[in-house]
Design a protein around this nucleic acid. Structure first.
Length: 997
RNA sequence: GCCGCGGUGGUGAAAUUGGUAGACACGAGAGACUUAAAAUCUCUUGGAGGCGACUCCGCGUGGGUUCGAGUCCCACCCGCGGCACCA
């Protein structure tokens, strides 16, 4: 027998499989289909990384398994080839993106083939190929025709480094997703896709004459798909649905109605009423400030209003605002800030009061001031808010700073009080920062009521411990007005005064603390101890951070729910009812209505970059925006363009590209020079695989019906709110306009977890800890790499790479090689008793377990099962022999269940066993229940829940017999000595638990 | 802050969904083969105690439910991911 040498066999089989077209999706109408898809990669110059290998191996195993199970499997691969990296590389080196992309694709493909991935390459797509983007452009035109693609002036995210606008989804923490540069706001005219049209259910066009079909929206459609919870939650989060109400506040101009109605408070309200009547039915929206709120029940607590710096109210009342100059200055400053700067959480809120105009709270007639402040966002709701400082932390902060009234209208359930009742209050303490910078919680002495550490002469006992700094920081910054910087609490303030105002710190501890006896140090001296030191010195016993809890009484601002008070007709109502009641009232008075707001905005798809699909639009002086006629598609991306970014699309500088005739009037016109976001190209590629060479449609409806939707989709979690949301939008839009008859593209989705470097950090070129799959294949072979990555742990978990462990799976392959190629599995079989039964048991168990594990994508345990049966095989063969028929069956079935994981070795051994047709043409074996039944089991005997004895008994043993056997055993008798049996629990085939009194 | 996921040996991880915690591997230790090393094979390997049979303790922490809890409930701590001044 020769040695197992992956190098020799793997290439051989890869070539043969290619020749045999064994991965080609067959169109056998008798079989059910499975569409198994990987997220098509961006072909980067760096080549495939181990993360790619992980997800591609997972889908490959599943695809190979499904073929063996008799499905028509569609398992394609392609290239998300447009994008910034290739363009940026081109700017640096002068090499055209088409060239670098072509090279990268070749590398990727070679690497994929070297892993034995069974892709149907006859369906390969490339998003930068004109035959592909022709249809991207065609889809754009359909969207345009149906009003889903539109151009408008908008505040956009501009990346100064990439010199292009970005979609909201591509801005991460205020910075460009690609390069990390802080994004600035720019007013630009840009193309959008109306993704917001599909949030809620809508009706598809009546394509089959059966009437319009109701289709799920982006929100409720998530209920129907098998996706990770985290991904569904993230999408819901991103869409950000909020239910509440809009409310119109009348605006009072101080030198108009107010002067007319006199000066007293009484007359102001009277004046308001008159004023309000006259405007409530008028359609003059300028005289109202409309807000959106999720807490209409707190309207009685609204004591001021805030508009965003961009709000039209400011220019509308330009001449009534007496401090307009100051306001204007503030607005200009706000406009200069990046999103990131505006959102600085640590920074204080700023704002300017609009002098000369105010608003009237419609529920109580109170005149309230209006501020402009950049903590109110222009893009959400109406760009204006009603501020309820008693019940909103942001409003509270602002009100504190500007001395605005805070009116409490909801009584919260005081959870803290309840907790306090359950735990004993030991004392009251102070937080102080010592000279060395350590943070100390100091307990007030219960006898003297003094704080010994602070007022040394008074003496007394002290307790000290370090507390988790993060928890403290959180609580302190919110509750005690303490500034925090660099992870350290820097100021405590006057403790006594906090105490006086009821904002004292109370310390609670749980009962165990008391029983261990708290020892306080004597004397006035402040001793600094870390927790470890304290325990070491036995000054404090059993003191853990869980033992000590601090919280603060009487928080003024909270966002929680409770019971309405001081709220007129809402008094006594719980929040949920109060909201309802208030909305009814608002609707009745016609000053507000139920409203739903979403966080998500329309998708900005135009980019001022070169390497993307051109937007098929022509601008004509006479006809305006003219879509390119479908017959003129594709609008080909010119290759002779200087692609240095200038803030305009590089295509602007190509006269050949730009100068065209208007398709309507034939007058000279100009082409749109922006290209589409690459995410547009990737939003429909999974449809193209169904019919990749079609030049009359993006795909033939029959082919789409045959293969779509995708049954299993695997890819990185980083696409949660980008690609996966956009693709769902595309699918829904295409269903609405009759091109598809489903609206969720991916029925089952799984993410692969990140593979970390051996040091537990992320792999990155700069850290030099990147594992190159090519090197692993060269050393251990593709089968070993595939097995290793699957054996590491659950697919979706993040897990560190451990080169040493590859040896384990490598050994397993070598063992498999020997076992299959040796007679009698390599054991001496003469004269030993025959035990075919045991062999059949092993293999049937494995067929069942491995099949089930593949179906639930638990590849790690599937592999361990295969390792286990080889271990168990040895156990059997040491003392038994088998017949050649049993041996052959075991070997062949073993190879079939191994083949999805390690296809090369399985195919090689298959042929060496004398077979003449590929193992992948075979069927997944059916397991035989007969061999899974066990006649004897290990029955666990417990006494009071503790394992005391094991009984090997027949699996169908009767309860009475089992009890008898258990009670007879010596070890059980020992534990029952002198005790009375209360009851006996019997779980058939599993255990007996004897409970004593 | 909100939402989601997780916390089990020296390491990667299993655990039939409430029934023997640590399967399967890696690593480590001891031994066999070898002149030697590698490879391979055998045994040991959660912690503590005991010569031993065995005993006690162990799934982030503290409670609870149960004959029985890694699994269910309550409270909390820590880590990761998403969103974040979204009213």
């Amino acid at each position: 027998m020769d040695k197992y040498s992956p190098k020799e066999i793997e290439l051989k089989w890869q070539n043969r499989w290619a020749q045999w077209e064994s991965a080609k999706a067959v169109e056998d109408g008798a079989k059910p289909k499975k569409y198994i898809l990987d997220m098509f990669p961006y072909p980067s110059g760096a080549g495939l990384h181990v993360g790619h290998v992980e997800s591609y191996t997972a889908t490959d195993i599943y695809a190979r398994y499904c073929r063996l199970k008799g499905f028509n499997v569609l398992h394609p691969q392609g290239w998300d080839a447009f994008g910034l990296p290739a363009e940026n590389y081109a700017i640096k080196t002068g090499i055209h993106p088409a060239e670098t992309t072509k090279r990268a694709v070749e590398t990727f493909k070679r690497q994929m083939n070297s892993l034995g991935l069974s892709y149907d390459w006859s369906r390969e797509v490339n998003s930068s190929d004109p035959d592909y983007y022709k249809w991207t452009q065609w889809l754009f035109l359909q969207f345009y025709k149906n009003g889903l693609a539109y151009k408008r002036m908008a505040k956009t995210n501009w990346c100064p480094s990439c010199q292009t606008v970005l979609a909201n989804e591509q801005v991460v923490n205020g910075a460009c997703e690609r390069c990390g540069t802080a994004v600035v706001q720019k007013d630009l005219e840009q193309w959008f896709f109306k993704i917001t049209d599909f949030i809620e259910p809508s009706f598809a066009n009546d394509s089959d004459g059966q009437g319009p079909k109701k289709m799920a929206g982006l929100l409720n459609g998530l209920d129907d798909v098998d996706w990770p919870d985290s991904t569904k939650a993230a999408q819901r989060n991103w869409i950000g649905r909020s239910e509440g109400a809009t409310v119109k506040f009348p605006i009072v101009i101080l030198n108009e109605p107010r002067t007319r109605s006199g000066g007293s408070e009484e007359s102001i309200i009277g004046g308001f009423k008159k004023y309000y009547r006259s405007f409530a039915n008028a359609q003059d929206d300028k005289m109202f400030l409309e807000v959106f709120t999720t807490r209409p029940d707190t309207l009685f607590g609204c004591t001021y209003m805030v508009v965003c710096p961009e709000h039209p109210l400011i220019s509308n009342f330009k001449f009534q605002i007496s401090n307009f100059k100051e306001v204007q200055k503030y607005i200009e400053q706000a406009a200069m800030k990046t999103d990131l700067e505006r959102a600085e959480l640590t920074k204080e809120k700023t704002g300017v009061k609009l002098e000369g105009v105010s608003a009237v709270n419609p529920v109580n007639g109170q005149e309230i001031p209006i501020f402009v402040a950049d903590y109110v966002l222009s893009g959400y709701g109406t760009g204006a808010i009603m501020a309820v400082p008693a019940h909103d932390v942001r409003d509270h902060e602002f009100a504190k700073k500007y001395g605005l009234p805070i009116t409490k209208v909801v009584e919260a359930d005081n959870k803290n009080e309840r907790d306090g009742e359950e735990k004993q209050i030991v004392g009251v303490g102070a937080l102080i920062r010592s000279e060395s910078g350590k943070f100390i919680f100091q307990l007030r002495d219960a006898n003297t009521n003094r704080f010994p550490g602070m007022i040394a002469p008074f003496g007394g006992g002290i307790l000290e411990a370090e507390l988790p700094i993060n928890a403290l920081k959180r609580e302190l910054s919110e509750e005690l007005n303490i500034t925090t910087e660099d992870g350290e609490v820097s100021l405590i303030g006057n403790f006594e005064s906090h105490f006086d105002r009821g904002k004292f710190i109370r310390m609670y501890y749980v009962a165990r603390f008391e029983t261990n006896g708290l020892k306080m140090t004597e004397g006035a001296e402040t001793v600094e101890l870390s927790l470890a030191e304290a325990l070491e010195n036995k000054k404090v016993t059993n003191f853990t951070k869980e033992v000590i809890r601090i919280f603060f009484g009487d928080s003024e601002a909270y966002a929680g729910e409770g019971v309405s008070v001081n709220s007129g007709f809402l008094d006594g109502l719980a929040t949920v009812q109060a909201k309802k009641r208030m909305i009814e009232w608002l609707e009745e008075k016609k000053i507000g209505r139920r409203a739903i707001n979403y966080r998500i905005r329309d998708w900005l798809i135009s980019r001022q970059r070169y390497w993307g699909a051109p937007i098929p639009i022509i601008y004509c002086v006479k006809c305006g925006i003219v879509p390119v006629p479908e017959s003129d598609l594709p609008v080909v991306l010119p290759t002779d363009v200087d692609f240095k970014p200038t803030g305009e699309s590089p295509l602007v500088h190509s006269a050949k590209f730009q100068d065209v005739k208007c398709p309507h009037c034939d007058e000279p016109a100009r082409r749109e020079a922006d290209t589409m976001d690459t995410f547009v190209c990737s939003s429909w590629y999974y449809l193209r695989y169904a019919d990749p060479d079609n030049d009359r449609a993006f795909a033939d409806p029959k082919q789409l019906a045959k293969w779509l939707p995708v049954d299993l989709y695997v890819g990185g979690a980083e696409h949660t709110v980008l690609h996966l949301l956009y693709s769902r939008f595309f699918t829904k839009a295409l269903q609405k306009y009759g091109y598809l008859d489903f609206n969720e593209p991916f029925l089952k989705l799984r993410h692969q977890g990140t593979i970390l470097a051996p040091d537990g950090q992320k792999m990155s070129k700069s850290k030099g800890n990147v594992i190159n799959p090519d090197e692993v294949v060269a050393e251990y072979g593709a089968d070993a790499l595939r097995l290793y990555e699957m054996f590491l742990g659950p697919l979706e978990d993040a897990k560190p790479w451990n080169t040493a462990s590859i040896a384990g799976v490598s050994r397993f392959l070598e063992k498999s090689w020997k076992v299959v190629l040796s007679d009698n599995f390599g054991f001496k079989g003469d004269h030993l008793p025959n035990n075919d039964e045991a062999i059949y048991r092993l293999i049937n168990r494995a067929i069942k377990k491995v099949g089930e594990d593949i179906e639930s994508m638990k590849f790690n345990t599937a592999i361990s099962e295969m390792m286990k049966i080889l271990n168990d095989l040895k156990e059997v063969m040491i003392s038994h022999s088998v017949t050649p028929a049993a041996e052959d069956t075991f070997k062949k079935y073993f190879l079939i269940i191994l083949s999805p994981f390690a296809p090369h070795i399985a195919e090689e051994l298959w042929f060496r066993l004398g077979e003449s047709e590929s193992i992948f043409k075979k069927s997944w074996p059916e397991y035989d229940e007969k061999y899974l039944r066990v006649e004897s089991v290990n029955l666990v005997v417990q006494v009071n829940g503790k394992l005391r004895h094991n009984l090997v008994v027949a699996s169908e043993i009767e309860e009475e017999d089992a009890k008898k056997l258990a009670l007879e055993s010596d070890s059980v008798k020992k534990w029952l000595a002198g005790k009375e049996i209360a009851k006996i629990i019997f779980v058939s085939g599993k255990l007996i638990n004897i409970v004593t009194k």
